[in-house]
């Protein structure tokens, strides 16, 4: 299991396009992926879950990856956040 703490850098937060990019990327891996924000945990592979997070710029998220390809998955997902979903 790998854990990461990330901050949302892109100004519009996890709105339609970044949320779709996140879920599509997560779907490429078999590992489980959970996101926690303010004690509220959702499945990172669920677009509805990601939407209900309503995560805005500056929000701090706790990411958990668990499974056979957890390392690759963590790299890909954390990369998306660091890159501000290509919106920086």
């Amino acid at each position: 299991m790998i854990e990461h703490q990330v901050t949302i850098k892109n100004r519009s937060g996890l709105h339609t396009r970044p949320a779709a990019a996140l879920v599509k990327t997560a779907a490429r891996f078999v590992s489980e992926f959970y996101i926690t924000k303010d004690d509220f945990e959702i499945n990172g592979k669920s677009i509805i879950g990601v939407m209900t997070l309503a995560a805005e710029q500056g929000a701090s998220l706790h990411l958990v990856f668990d499974g056979s390809d957890e390392e690759e998955m963590a790299n890909a997902i954390v990369g998306l956040f660091e890159d501000g979903f290509g919106e920086l």
Partner: peptide, 16 residues
């Protein structure tokens, strides 16, 4: 197109 791409992802939502 993005509006409908998002709807497709909702239809495929694993948690739902």
């Amino acid at each position: 197109a993005q509006i409908f791409e998002s709807q497709l992802l909702m239809l495929d939502d694993v948690e739902m």
